[in-house]
Amino acid sequence: MEFTQTMEHVIKELAVIRKVYAKAFSESFVQESFSPNEVNILIFLARNPSLNTGRDLSICLDVSKGLICRSVDALIKKEMITARDDPDDRRIQRLVLTKKADPVIQEIFKVNQEISKDIFQGIPEEEIVQMEKTLRKIIQKFHERLEII
């Protein structure tokens, strides 16, 4: 198989993975609907509390500023996050998770663990470790390529 076809295949399969997670999360949050982007923002802020501006989210999640803004507004209305003025730069607002977000984030992590446990069941740990090593090498090469461009 040609490399271009391999990368196209990987990209398509990553979309399948995102759909599985999005479906599981939406089923878990029937009482309160969250868009996939809102879930991504909650996860990102939970795991990266120091990267907490709209710009940080846009860059790190590779999502347009407009979509970030709409999702942040929705999360503020749901009282999942607050926007606080930066004490050193009034132009910047810092996004902070609220206590109300805690159970939602815990549920997201729980669903994530359940999916991972199910997906990796029956795959030897050595194969998983090798896959992670290979992916890190591939991703590093893409980062190096991006620096050249």
Rank of each mutant, 00 (worst) to 15 (best):
I41D: 07
S64G: 10
N37T: 14
S35M: 04
S58T: 06
Q93L: 13
S33P: 10
C60P: 01
D73L: 10
E32I: 06
F34A: 02
K77Q: 11
S35V: 08
I76S: 07
Q31G: 09
Q93D: 12
E79M: 11
T82D: 15
S28F: 06
Q93K: 15
K78Y: 03
R91G: 10
D89M: 07
L45P: 03
S58Q: 04
R70W: 11
E27D: 13
L61M: 12
R90V: 13
R91T: 03
D89I: 02
K65Y: 15
Q31W: 08
S64N: 06
P87C: 06
R47S: 10
D88V: 10
R84G: 09
Q31D: 15
T82R: 12
V30T: 13
D85Y: 03
I43N: 14
R91W: 05
L45N: 02
S50Q: 09
I41S: 15
T82K: 14
A74Q: 03
V39G: 04
I92W: 03
L75D: 02
I81W: 02
R94E: 00
D89W: 00
V39L: 07
A46C: 08
F44T: 01
A46N: 15
D86A: 09
S58A: 13
K77S: 11
V72W: 03
L61E: 05
E38I: 08
V72I: 07
R90C: 06
S58V: 05
D86V: 11
S71K: 00
S50G: 08
V39F: 01
S64F: 01
T53I: 02
C69Y: 10
N37L: 14
V96I: 11
S58K: 07
L75E: 01
V72M: 07
F44G: 05
D62V: 02
S64P: 00
F29I: 08
E38S: 07
Q93P: 01
L67Y: 02
R70K: 15
K65W: 08
Q93R: 14
D62A: 13
D85Q: 06
I92R: 06
N48S: 04
A74C: 14
N40S: 12
S26Y: 09
S71W: 02
V96Y: 05
R94H: 00
D62F: 14
F44Q: 03
E79I: 12
C60N: 13
A83P: 04
V72K: 03
D86M: 08
S33H: 14
E32K: 11
R55L: 13
I59D: 00
K77N: 14
L51A: 06
S71R: 00
N48I: 03
C60A: 10
I81V: 15
P87Y: 12
S64R: 00
R91A: 09
R84P: 02
L95S: 01
L57N: 10
V30P: 01
R94V: 05
E32D: 13
L42Y: 02
C60L: 10
K65S: 15
F29L: 08
C69A: 15
E38R: 02
K78W: 06
D73N: 15
I68E: 04
R84W: 01
S71C: 13
S33I: 10
L51Q: 07
S35T: 15
I59A: 06
L57C: 01
V39D: 05
